[in-house]
Write a protein that binds this DNA or RNA. Structure first.
Lengths: 345, 345
DNA sequence: AAGCAAATTCAAACCGCTTTGAATACAATA
DNA sequence: TATTGTATTCAAAGCGGTTTGAATTTGCTT
């Protein structure tokens, strides 16, 4: 039995035209029922799969989604939430047969990377990660007319675009107010780099809760930095070293919270007893805590779900480009764990 | 000025044939120097980029590398080292113009996912992540004649293949012997799932060090599980609860080590004083510790570098398929931090 | 100035699929 | 049975590049 590697061979093998075979396999209605059965059975048996390259060229669609992650030269951090986000998105792509194209782009070339992708016609759409407060990428993508979804938002941009975001403002408002209700008055916020949109939103939520409760917001209680474990540690050490240390600390990620805990314990204190810690929790698979009472009180929101929904929204937009742009706001749950306690005074 | 979107238009614009323009852009020697200059200048100015889809079909090459990550239905963990590995590989792909295709595959379809990829002719090669001790994927890929590189090894497989791996056996041998030299005699190993090759190699190294030093290897000191933070925590609690708790613990990853530390501190002990901890450190960007004395004594090996080297090896193999298969063994550094101390007895 | 090899350029075929427009087969109608 | 309509099938023309084999220039020789 000769090897069937392309449509032509399959068509000849069946004594049919390529047209008919192609249509039979792609579910066109004008093919005789019986013929279709035969064709499908043969394709199955001979393990015929249409060549992806040829298909892409012929249809003019890439059947691929680009994820462009910008990598800064200075601080080369790969966002740890990335893997879980991708896992969620990927699940959705598989359902519709899209491939996932990943490009890590040095951020000085970022804009041109998008133009290239379009010029090369390599993807049908892209997902934007960690947008800035006024992210130039959105404008560029709209100009290029390439469908895209932002994971997060770009508050100061006046572009129209699709996005999927956690309600960071409210989550951190609630987190802060929760601590205030426990009697805490000096609450620190160990946040990420200020050029990221979500960092700003979180700060806003935090400050709104303070001012609503007539607590003076001390800027010295707000720290910003690359969200690593050592950063959490250094932040805790620095905060506890203050003349008046905070009685509660809010962390922007579990990784940071882990560092904070380390700093606290190294200072001879105990988290949840001497000082409260509340973290945002992206529900990453390798931090998932199955115990009855979670270690950390946290605002939890699954980044994997965000990935799935972003992918879903993007696919809808690709398949119907005139679809109005949509924003999806995910609410975080406030989960009570054992890292928070009423303030002792 | 009309928009130049394809070769034909560019050729007409220049009054040249497609052939010549194509050759000028692709650096063929038989093009007049002056002509080439003109063509290149025009392409640059008009921002002409050859259509990726057409190019792939015409050349028969996908210019894409597949990373197939298997996701188990039961324990849906995305390996946290993945992001950094990809970052390293991506840097290498960019140098040679390859795209990175990422597929998360439910592991029951794993083998067929590879066949599909080949049948669809979607990638020029693949990277295999976290191989098992006798991984069926290697045989399959060799049969399919698709170039690949394994990140790690498959000890019991008798296939011939490219691989890039850390010398896990030696790293853990050294780690264990280091602790023994400090006087430790009961050393626990908190390792990953036993179906992964590197887990087995690490166990082997650990055991070899014990037996070399005439220490009876107690299997009860070897724990296996999904390498998460909570797993590290539970392991520490369980170990410390033993009638004779270990005086030192070796952790298979920083995340696990963090959990172990949490368990230790929760038990009222102090890591590095009451009990020693030594971890393997993949040098992940979000754990990178810039302080003078690292927190953890660790066997350190950059997974990002492994990513870069794997990509490099794969590209070499793709561009020269007859190239003999190669294995690259990376040695881990033993970095002394403050989590280890001589055993008190 | 003719002759010939080397340097350039070009028209056309090809990669493997989809899709258009025409052709053929079959069934129903008059 | 001739006619008309509908269901199927097909040959050929793209998609946008690369590559083969032939044609045209150009540069030297004699």
């Amino acid at each position: 039995m000769k090897k069937i590697t392309n449509l032509k061979a399959l068509a000849e093998h069946l004594g049919l035209s390529q047209t008919t075979v192609s249509r039979a396999l792609n579910g066109f209605p004008e093919v005789n029922h019986k013929t279709r059965q035969i064709v499908q059975a043969a394709a199955q048996k001979l393990n015929y799969k249409p060549n992806a390259r040829a298909k892409r060229l012929a249809t003019g669609r890439s059947m691929a989604i680009g994820h462009l992650v910008s990598v800064s030269k200075g601080h080369e951090i790969v966002n740890p939430i990335f893997a879980d986000f991708i896992a969620g998105a990927s699940a959705r792509y598989i359902e519709s047969g899209y491939d996932l194209l990943l490009s890590l782009v040095p951020d000085e070339n970022e804009l041109s990377a998008y133009s290239d992708l379009v010029a090369r016609d390599a993807v049908d759409g892209v997902i934007i990660h960690t947008p800035k407060e006024d992210d130039p990428r959105l404008k560029r993508l709209n100009e290029l007319n390439l469908p895209f979804v932002v994971h997060g938002r770009s508050t100061k941009s006046n572009e129209v675009y699709n996005w999927v975001d956690v309600n960071n403002e409210r989550a951190f408002f609630r987190a802060t107010e929760f601590l205030i209700d426990l009697g805490h008055r000096s609450i620190a916020l160990v946040n990420g780099m200020t050029d990221m949109d979500f960092v700003i939103r979180r700060t806003t939520g935090y400050q709104r809760a303070l001012s609503k409760n007539d607590i003076e917001s001390q800027t010295s209680y707000i720290l910003n930095g690359e969200m690593t474990e050592p950063y959490g540690y250094r932040s805790a050490i620095a905060l506890l070293d203050r003349p008046i240390p905070p009685t509660a600390i809010i962390a922007s990620s579990m990784l940071v919270a882990n560092g904070i805990r380390r700093g606290i314990e190294e200072s001879g204190l105990k988290m949840g007893r001497d000082i409260s810690v509340l973290s945002h929790d992206d529900d990453l698979s390798y931090f998932r805590d199955e115990s009855e009472v979670p270690v950390y009180t946290a605002t939890r929101s699954s980044v994997r779900e965000a990935g799935y929904k972003s992918a879903d929204l993007l696919i809808k937009t690709i398949e119907n480009p005139t679809r109005p742009r949509e924003g999806i706001l995910l609410e975080a749950n406030l989960i009570i764990g054992s890292s928070t306690r009423p303030a002792v005074r």
